[in-house]
């Protein structure tokens, strides 16, 4: 049975901040931070935006591109590490806002930066077993870095929504494979505002070990090699890790450049690979093959072998909601405005 992506939508808040602006506050060389992380700017959520509003905007874009009855959506999973509520599912509000309630199952996922791809896997299982007609998987975050921490230069906001189904599939999911271990590279304890991380430990034993193992094992299972793929999207905590991972795996810069958005919008965490995949689907042609590998600290990777179908030719991609159009609409803010929007300023009575 052909299970895959029926529609998709990405959303990125319009505010941006440059690494130089952050570096100046902390007495750091902005140019070297920018070059070291491969970051030119990152997105900043507005004061009235959070994971739920980002998820709803992305979900509504996905729905606007196809003609389906929202009551046929049998599951909604929202993956994020920055859900606005500790207890009260974001997915319930998203489901209500797109008119999918009440006949569906809904839940929130958390797995650092890969909770959105875990949601795609669950929806694929439910659709593939005929338990539901359509499932909606969303990855969205308004990630926070502690003031002055290296994360502050990359942690950004954005998300994407995917409708998984069996009918009019624009991109077939041929195979998904996951690789999971207990690796404490990045975490946030209950009640803590900002996350902690293991510094350099987040690289080799964490990001690279999981991404490389997951990608190689998937290719072994499906019998492919890097040159069989037209595009590859790897988790992108900064602008350099995914390019380095691609090189180690044998993928070229050309294969990863289309889905690499972190240099411009920062690390959108659960939204990262899903926005990258949306940028690829915006331009993909029938029979294009895509490798997508997410990474979530803690740690685990989800990989996907995806083939674009003929349905992409009639799919509505000529709207103002392509990833490139959304990213073009932006406004740079100062560190002071950024601090205000991110709730880093203590107000009287707060």
């Amino acid at each position: 049975m052909e299970v895959g992506i029926v529609s998709y939508g990405a959303y990125v808040p319009r505010f941006r901040i440059k690494p130089h602006e952050i570096a100046e506050v902390w007495g750091v060389d902005g140019e070297s931070m920018s070059k070291g992380l491969g970051i030119k700017s990152k997105s900043v959520p507005g004061p009235d935006e959070d994971v739920i509003t980002i998820a709803v905007e992305a979900a509504r874009i996905a729905l606007s591109r196809i003609d389906i009855d929202t009551s046929d959506i049998g599951s909604i999973y929202v993956g994020s590490e920055s859900h606005p509520y500790a207890v009260k599912p974001s997915a319930t509000i998203v489901a209500e806002a797109i008119g999918a309630t009440p006949d569906l199952t809904a839940a929130d996922y958390e797995f650092a930066c890969k909770a959105g791809t875990a949601a795609i896997q669950t929806c694929s299982g439910l659709v593939g077993s005929n338990a539901i007609r359509y499932g909606m998987a969303i990855g969205a975050d308004t990630s926070q870095g502690a003031p002055g921490d290296a994360l502050e230069y990359t942690a950004s906001a954005g998300g994407a929504a995917y409708i998984i189904g069996r009918e009019n599939v624009i991109a077939k999911i041929n195979k998904t494979y996951s690789y999971t271990t207990d690796t404490p590279d990045f975490w946030r304890r209950e009640g803590e505002k900002y996350p902690s991380h293991g510094g350099r430990f987040t690289g080799e034993p964490a990001y690279f070990k999981h991404i490389l193992s997951c990608a190689n094992n998937l290719m072994e299972i499906v019998g492919t090699k890097p040159s069989d793929y037209d595009y590859a999207v790897f988790h992108q905590p900064n602008g350099k890790f995914p390019v380095s991972a691609a090189k180690k795996l044998g993928f070229s810069k050309e294969q990863v450049s289309c889905g690499l958005l972190t240099p411009v919008i920062g690390n959108t965490y659960s939204g990262a690979v899903l926005i990258g995949l949306a940028a690829v689907l915006d331009v993909a042609k029938p029979n294009d093959r895509i490798m997508m590998v997410a990474y979530g600290s803690g740690a685990g990777s989800d990989s996907f072998d995806i083939s674009v179908t003929d349905e992409i030719k009639t799919f509505n991609r000529n709207d103002s909601n392509t990833v490139s159009s959304i990213i073009q609409n932006h406004k740079f803010v100062s560190y002071a405005t950024y601090a205000k929007y991110m709730g880093k300023i203590h107000l009287r009575g707060a």
Partner: peptide, 20 residues
């Protein structure tokens, strides 16, 4: 229309969403 946060009942209260 856009979907946004309209308000909240303080830091521990309900968050209100709606149209802008």
């Amino acid at each position: 229309p856009a979907f946004r946060k309209i308000g909240e009942d303080g830091k521990s209260g309900v968050i209100y969403y709606g149209y802008k």
